[in-house]
């Protein structure tokens, strides 16, 4: 079990309020991802749940039990840190055993659990090494191993992959997702990488300055962003937001169109512009176009190879059915 509920939780450091009153419910077995720009309070929120920070007001409930005043170790949560936070003087085996040792578990039981964790994380060959002798990915696996053996009711991850290189990150992302599918334990995962958020989450929580902008499934957020912030934050490359005459034509203050929902042509279209930079990825071409009224530059994604070069004139046609409209407060208009 691991249902986590935040009830009007606030957090202030001295005078500055980092988290204004916030309500959130994470269901048992759910993979929830907190995303948001740097400094928006993702880590703080996670630490409040873990108990490493005290709430200024409000309640934290785990499985309907008020744990606001319960010490971190009694909450039954495991946390994986960005910097791994392994104990440098202990071998991998001792690192993984540490929480069990603190809980006074018998040696045999410890050994069995270490073995199981090491096997599932491919660490069997490294059990007698110290953290300093491991690669970044291996270290992160040890940290996860240390989290698993406690049989927590929920896992908390604070940007666990951001110290790894791109290739490893993709691999570890899959491993963590598979681990979640296998264990069906609640996981809360903090990241500012929206690809991680989109690929891993059952539920994404978008935060800005401590305020929840939207909660929903990845595709929900992609198709129906509730406001301009979410629209601009979710999706890569970013949604094009257009203001002015073009928006008013659609009866909105701002309209948004994703780069993949604009058709680009060298001969005809609704809007005209000149090519700035074209990024050729092979599978796709991202073209940055200047001169479209109300949006400069506009990014367009063309499938496959699309050969244009700097200064060429191109024509764009948005798919009007997939247009997002926002009012003058930045909220979505249906």
């Amino acid at each position: 079990m691991g249902q986590i509920v935040l009830d009007k939780v606030t957090k202030s450091f001295g005078e500055t309020q980092v988290i204004p009153p916030l309500d959130l419910k994470i269901e048992d077995g759910e993979f929830a991802v907190f995303v948001g720009p740097s400094g928006c309070g993702k880590s703080t929120l996670l630490r409040l749940i873990a108990g490493l920070e005290d709430t200024t007001s409000g309640k934290v409930l785990i499985d309907d039990e008020d744990v606001t005043q319960v010490s971190p170790s009694k909450r039954g949560l495991s946390m994986v840190f960005q910097t791994y936070a392994l104990y440098p003087h202990m071998t991998v085996r001792k690192n993984i055993a540490f929480p069990m040792r603190m809980a006074g578990m018998s040696e045999q039981e410890q050994e069995a659990k270490i073995k199981a964790a090491a096997e599932s994380l491919n660490l069997t060959d490294y059990l007698d090494r110290k953290p300093g002798q491991l690669s970044g990915g291996q270290r992160q696996r040890v940290a996860i191993g240390r989290a698993i053996v406690r049989d927590p009711s929920a896992f908390l991850f604070d940007e666990p992959l951001s110290n790894l290189d791109a290739a490893l990150r993709v691999g570890m992302r899959l491993e963590i997702t598979e681990m979640h599918k296998r264990m069906q334990t609640t996981m809360i995962y903090v990241t500012h990488d929206q690809v991680e958020a989109m690929t891993m989450a059952d539920k994404i929580v978008v935060l800005q300055a401590g305020v929840i902008e939207q909660v929903g499934s990845p595709l929900d957020l992609y198709h129906r962003p509730q406001n301009k912030f979410v629209a601009g934050f979710i999706g890569s490359p970013k949604m094009n937001l257009i203001e002015g005459v073009e928006a008013e034509k659609q009866g909105a203050h701002t309209i948004g169109i994703r780069p993949e929902h604009v058709e680009i042509s060298t001969t005809e279209g609704l809007w005209q512009g000149t090519v700035g930079v074209a990024e050729h990825l092979g599978s796709d071409t991202f073209v940055h176009i200047h001169g479209v009224p109300g949006c400069d530059p506009m990014t367009v994604r063309a499938a496959g190879e699309f050969s244009v070069s700097h200064g060429d004139t191109v024509y764009l046609t948005p798919n009007l059915a997939l247009l997002h409209k926002f009012d003058d407060k930045g909220l979505r208009i249906e």
Binding site: A50, L52, P72, S73, L77, S78, M79, F81, T83, A85, L86, Y87, P88, H89, M90, F98, P99, M102, A103, R146, R150
Partner: peptide
């Protein structure tokens, strides 16, 4: 490293265990 301390707190280490297993080494 403060994060090591926090990890130890979550792992259930009390003040003495933190001293013995983290600070002293």
């Amino acid at each position: 490293d403060q994060q090591q301390k926090e990890a130890a707190i979550l792992d259930g280490a009390g003040a003495w265990s933190q001293f013995r297993f983290l600070t002293l080494p």
